[in-house]
C-alpha cells in the first residue's frame, strides 16, 4: 500500500487513477496496464520493478507524456494530461520531465555541450544562457573537459552522465529513468546511481525502472508490477518515516 500518512501534508507531483493502457492489434486487444492507482510525492525516490513485459516501460512512458493512456486519469502537477494538446504535451516533456534512458539516447551528430543544450533550445532559452547552464551541468556530472566531444567518443558511463546533465537542463519536476544502469558495468553503474542519490538528496523527484534489487534498495519505495497490475509496494525510505 502507498504511504498513507503524508497524503495531505505533501504535494503529489504525479497522481494516476485506474490508469489503463491497451494496444488494439488487428485480431486482439492487448491490455498492458490494467488499472493502476498511484501517487508520487515531491522529493520521492521510487523504483518500479517487475518481470519483463509487466508494463514498466509502458507506465514510465505514460508518466513521461510520451504515450497516452487508453483509460483512467493522469494528473501531473495541476495538469490533467488527457486534456492537453500535442504541443502542450511537448512543453510538459521539455519543462517538467527529465528522461534518462537505458541506451543513453544522445544525438550522435551533436557534441556533448549541444546535447545538453537541446532541451533548453526547445524552451526558447537564449543561446548565451543555454551555453552557461550546459557548461555548469557538464561540470556537475564531471565532464567539463569533454564538452566538444561527440557521444561515440565517450564511454557508456560518461554518456549516461551526459544524459543526466541533459535531463536536468530545464530543472524538471520529475526525473524518469528507464533502467539507467542496464547497459553499464557495475562500476560506472554505481557512479550513475550515486548521482541519482545526490539529485534526490537535493530534492528532485525520481522514478526509476529497474531489474536490479540493489538499485531498488537505494530508493524510498518500490512498486512491484505484475502483468499490468500493482503486485505490492515495498516501503523503506525516509519519505514516510519523517512524516
Amino acid at each position: 500500500m502507498p504511504c498513507p500518512q503524508p497524503n495531505n501534508s505533501r504535494q503529489a507531483v504525479v497522481r494516476i487513477e485506474n490508469l489503463q493502457k491497451a494496444y488494439y492489434l488487428p485480431h486482439q486487444e492487448l491490455s498492458v496496464l490494467k488499472g493502476l492507482d498511484m501517487a508520487f510525492y515531491e522529493g520521492e525516490y521510487v523504483s518500479i520493478m517487475g518481470p519483463s513485459g509487466s508494463g514498466k516501460s509502458t507506465l514510465l512512458n505514460i508518466l513521461g507524456c510520451l504515450d497516452k493512456p487508453t483509460g483512467g486519469r493522469y494528473m501531473l502537477g495541476e495538469h490533467d494530461i488527457a486534456l492537453l494538446s500535442d504541443d502542450e504535451l511537448s512543453a510538459i516533456r521539455g519543462r517538467r520531465i527529465g528522461f534518462i534512458f537505458q541506451s543513453f539516447n544522445l544525438i550522435s551528430q551533436l557534441n556533448i555541450l549541444e546535447n545538453i543544450e537541446v532541451a533548453m533550445y526547445y524552451q526558447q532559452v537564449p543561446k548565451h544562457q543555454r551555453h552557461q547552464r550546459a557548461m555548469m551541468l557538464a561540470d556537475r556530472v564531471g565532464l567539463a573537459d569533454r564538452l566538444h566531444h561527440r557521444p561515440f567518443e565517450l564511454s557508456g558511463g560518461q554518456q549516461q552522465r551526459v544524459a543526466i546533465a541533459r535531463s536536468l537542463a530545464n530543472d524538471p519536476l520529475i526525473i524518469l529513468a528507464d533502467e539507467p544502469t542496464g547497459n553499464l558495468d557495475s562500476k560506472s553503474g554505481s557512479e550513475i546511481l550515486q548521482m541519482l542519490d545526490e539529485l534526490n538528496a537535493q530534492g528532485k523527484t525520481i522514478i526509476v525502472v529497474t531489474h536490479d534489487e540493489n538499485v531498488a534498495a537505494r530508493t524510498h519505495r518500490t512498486v512491484h508490477l505484475l502483468d499490468g497490475r500493482v503486485e505490492r509496494v515495498a516501503e523503506r525510505g525516509p519519505a514516510c518515516s519523517n512524516a
Binding site: 513521461g64 510520451l66 500535442d86 504541443d87 511537448s90 512543453a91 516533456r93 521539455g94 519543462r95 528522461f99 539516447n105 544522445l106 544525438i107 550522435s108 551528430q109 537541446v118 532541451a119 526547445y122 524552451q123 541533459r166 530545464n170
Partner: peptide, 16 residues
Amino acid sequence: TREIGIRRALGARKKD
C-alpha cells in the same frame, strides 16, 4: 528516426 524520437522526448513540438 531515433533522433526525432529523442528530440520529441526533450520537448520538441511537431512544428519544431
